[in-house]
Design a protein around this nucleic acid. Structure first.
Lengths: 235, 235
DNA sequence: ACCTGAACACCGTTCAAGT
DNA sequence: ACCTGAACACCGTTCAAGT
């Protein structure tokens, strides 16, 4: 019962789900998430739009499956080779690196946070290392949600980009420089240190303006919080 | 030069930006973000779609302006009345509460994180209280980005919902219960404590399934991290 | 099983025209 | 200034038809 390769599509190799998803990722990487349409994917592969529907199902499923590839590309460090704190730090850095390679998927990875099979190894490994270090029950749940939520949520924000409504740098700085100094004392006073570097008052996103320092500080805080909860658990 | 009220639209009061945004918020709250279209807003107000374009500009701008209303509704506690830790905790709770009232905007508030005027008071107050407690320069930036990024990113994840691709509970549990136990030991072992409660392995979002405990734990960790950085700053 | 092809309802935005 | 009205290019999805 060997599977004989069919040759539809005028003798070309038949479409596969993998071909479709790779084409989708390319479009998102090059043109942004809003440019991802079934029709464009079909064009890129030289087929009719409805052929995509046959393989994938719907547009929503296409987005979900394509963003799953990012979790699949994720390489996790070895448990045995590191202290749990370092393992969490390395894993966070690895996840952030993967996201930075496909920044236009950032919004979706946050949204698509439901039992996706490609993400399960990540879930398992994080749960396991916390579990192996004494956490269980509600303490485990808190630690896991704290780590995963901050990691994915924070990086997703770092890379978020406003489709097209964003002002340019000059307009942005003009607004910030002309604020009422009596109302916005702290913003005015610290403008050089926060302008285009702090959330909500920047115009370049994490692709061109990565926030490495803040990310490391944030992760240290979260991991320290987990460490403290482990101690109180043992006593 | 008093502004005489015009009566276009067959004698009805003229459209205002505020009417349009309120109609938009209603649609998003009731039908989800993907249901927000210029044409539906126009229908709700009894005008032609292009009338919306005249007042707002574009679809992207409509989404941006409508999500700005959430920041405007935000009530911030008094600086003088609380220790800075409590102020940050109360503000976080207040922000989270606002988001939970409009969960369908969660994705966008994360995305729209660029100098938006409605969010500036929030920015100012957070910067100010950190500044008043000794933080400046890079230390201030780290603390601010850590707090704001975790707050908005985390809550945004808590409320995120997969448009329609999501499985139902039965299908979800079936997948989780039949995992290879040799590969997914930690998931299998802790299934009762994490199923539908932990990120990535839940099927209800924060609206029906709020993650209060994890949120408080996460916020405490972040605030403790900031406190530690203040001490090392002084010494 | 896999893909074509036509058709449908919907979308954002343009531009000219009205008042 | 404010809105109508028609028009255009684009979209996801259906369903029947081909091979």
């Amino acid at each position: 019962m060997a599977h004989v390769q069919k040759t539809t599509r005028n003798g070309q190799a038949p479409l596969t789900k993998d071909m479709i998803l790779r084409a989708a990722v390319t479009i998102v990487d090059e043109q942004g998430l809003q440019a991802l349409t079934i029709r464009k994917v079909a064009d890129a592969l030289g087929v009719y739009p409805t052929a995509i529907n046959w393989h994938i199902g719907s547009k929503d499923q296409l987005v979900a499956d394509a963003s799953g590839l990012i979790f699949e590309a994720l390489r996790l460090p070895d448990d045995k080779a590191h202290e749990w704190q370092d393992w969490l730090r390395l894993t966070a850095a690895s996840f952030r690196e993967s996201m930075h390679k496909h920044p236009n998927f950032a919004v979706v990875v946050g949204t698509q946070l439901y039992t996706s099979l490609p993400a399960l190894p990540f879930v398992e490994r994080v749960l396991r290392i916390l579990n192996d270090n004494g956490l269980k029950g509600d303490g485990l749940l808190r630690a896991y949600n704290s780590y995963v939520g901050c990691l994915i949520g924070w990086v997703s924000l770092e890379l978020s980009s406003t489709s097209s409504v964003a002002f340019d740098e000059k307009a942005q700085m003009h607004v910030l420089s002309n604020l009422d100094e009596r109302l916005y004392t702290a913003v005015a006073k610290n403008l050089p240190t926060v302008a285009n570097k702090a959330f909500i008052i920047r115009w370049d996103n994490g692709t061109t303006n990565p926030m490495n320092d803040s990310f490391e500080f944030m992760m240290d805080s979260v991991i320290n919080g987990i460490a403290r909860s482990m101690k109180s658990f043992k006593s």
